[in-house]
Amino acid sequence: MATHSEVTSRPSAAGALERRGGPAEAPVRPPVDIYEDDEGITLCADMPGVSKDRLELRVEANTLILEGTARLDLPENAEALYADVRSNTYRRTFALSGELETGKIDANLKDGVLTVRIPKRSEVRPRRIEVRAG
């Protein structure tokens, strides 16, 4: 839960936003590729700036939750000139279906790309059905 405590322990950030009466800083929804093959489903998500210790991946009630916090390497007195990205947190969720082995999810994070592999239960993997000539 490291990412959570990091986000919520920012009274200054939260306070500044509330004072302006603006909406809370919405997390970035990372773009994803999702594909399925016979063995399972693979999900790739772009989460630049997130390292392994600032990534949280979990399954809650059949929902896959991706969360992360990006960090930029900047001097303390830095000010902004321009910003496409306005939030330093990522979040996106996906509903999983019953035939997936949620206990055997495999994840890998490299250069800001998260790859999640969710295998299918072996009994639901497609089997070729022979058609007998009648």
Partner: peptide, 22 residues
Amino acid sequence: MVAIASSAPDSLFEELWRLQQQ
């Protein structure tokens, strides 16, 4: 590279957000 205090990125994002709002 300068070693960075953990509060720096937050204040930058905060600043960026304000700037964009303006």
